[in-house]
Design a protein around this nucleic acid. Structure first.
Lengths: 250, 250
DNA sequence: CGGAACGTTGAGGAGAATCAATTATAGTGG
DNA sequence: CCACTATAATTGATTCTCCTCAACGTTCCG
């Protein structure tokens, strides 16, 4: 694709409009955003904890993990960012990073200057509101992950994660909930669920033995979505997929 | 106090201004907000999961827990809200609650109509930005809780929680980090840390035996803050206490 | 072809859950 | 003011989930 960044910007804007009503003018302003593309290999830090960032990172291809760490270096991934996701929209109003961002696979990023994004938000308050709403949706996902890690067992946690990622990849137009590519290692899955890689491996085997799901060559194949959703205690309401926020500015 | 709601509004506004620069006019608009007061006994649901809310809840007195649940009824508290906290500011742009709110103690709430808050935000974009930034700070705290539950052991989790609450009560002007009243039960502490009440009890005893912290009659007394912070792996950066967000609108 | 990263499996152990019972504390009504 | 009740705290015994350590197999890529 000649201009992958344009296609990705589309994906991001589509996500915004699914939650917020935007005017023609606002859409135009968003479409006219320009950034620059960086290509990164796995395990590259995009943003370090404590860093002052001046651009937001839109994932074009690959996979990015947002994470926090404990003093022993234990890593907790708090969110996966797939193509079309703006990994750190929140940095627009809070540029001092309290989290880190790292690539989990070969990844292409479109960097959009805060200056430009803030300019758009300041000129067109509807954009600011859409950004705000997206940050809130992000928080809702964080809450669900907290419930996942705090109150579900290993099998349930993994199942929940695979359900969420299935829906998200489906919406992003990359595969569907029954079959999608998730370029994360078992270590990454452990870091996302608060488990060890070894236990992820055993849990995956049990899901495979139950004929519910397989993960092979970074491809998730869901054999029985209904069972997976039950085991994962999954209800997509927290993902705030449908708009419904009334508009501040009419 | 004749008008406790006014004093509480002050607390909320002070929190906003600590992170965001607000103009005289914006402050005036915030100060002129009016709500109505409700008094609630412990274990009363303020907001149920899935409910469409039309007002935001500002905690005047007592303690509120935001929570999610798994299918077995297991509860994960995702945030404690103390006096001066707006428990669901995010509902302004996302009124369909994906979380629940419940009182953990005898609690007084000031209910502020979305209509009024949204009106203020729409008229004065600086207010919208301050609200947005507060939602982002909230997300930062959520992330840290996720790290806490996912990547720390029981003692560390509790210690971290007590550090955070100490700082927050100190800033709220209710006690200080070395001694503050936290009207939560051991069950609540378990629900906040992803542990059982029984294990909380044993962990508290171990902290007491180490002469680090005591919890008696809902009063936290920190005997050794330095050790508590080390055990809890605590760094207050994630609380986003200092402003520093540049302003969208100058 | 060789090395590095990732995945798989086993054995043993630790931390937290569960089950069960008892003791404190606080709130309520007589 | 005190008995009564419900809620919360405490403790012990046992179980189980998940971690740790260790080894080996597999895949991918230069």
């Amino acid at each position: 694709m000649a201009f992958p960044q344009n296609a990705t910007l589309e994906g991001f804007i589509k996500r915004l409009t699914s939650r917020s009503a935007l005017s023609e003018q606002e859409l135009l302003a968003l479409h006219s955003l320009r950034g620059h593309v960086v290509t990164l290999s796995p395990h590259t830090d995009l943003v370090r904890q404590g860093q002052h960032v001046e651009y937001a990172s839109l994932v074009v291809k690959g996979l990015v993990g947002r994470f926090g760490q404990n003093k022993d270096g234990g890593r907790q991934i708090t969110c996966f960012h797939i193509p079309g996701d703006m990994a750190d929209l929140s940095s627009l109003v809070s540029p001092q990073a309290t989290w880190g961002l790292t690539t989990l696979a070969n990844t292409t990023i479109l960097r959009l200057a805060h200056r430009d994004l803030r300019g758009a938000a300041a000129t067109l308050p509807g954009i600011a509101e859409a950004f705000w709403r997206d940050c809130v949706a992000d928080g809702s996902m964080l809450s669900e992950w907290l419930v996942n890690v705090g109150r579900r067992n290993a099998t349930s946690r993994l199942a929940h994660l695979f359900c969420e990622m299935g829906i998200r990849y489906e919406l992003a137009g990359e595969g569907d909930r029954h079959c999608y590519r998730l370029p994360a290692t078992q270590t990454d899955l452990g870091d996302a669920t608060g488990l060890t890689a070894i236990h992820i491996n055993r849990t995956l085997r049990s899901l495979r033995d139950l004929l519910i799901l397989t993960l092979r060559a970074q491809t998730v194949t869901v054999l029985d979505w209904a069972k997976l959703a039950v085991i994962g205690d999954f209800d997509d309401a927290y993902m705030e997929l449908k708009g419904g926020g009334d508009c501040l500015y009419n």
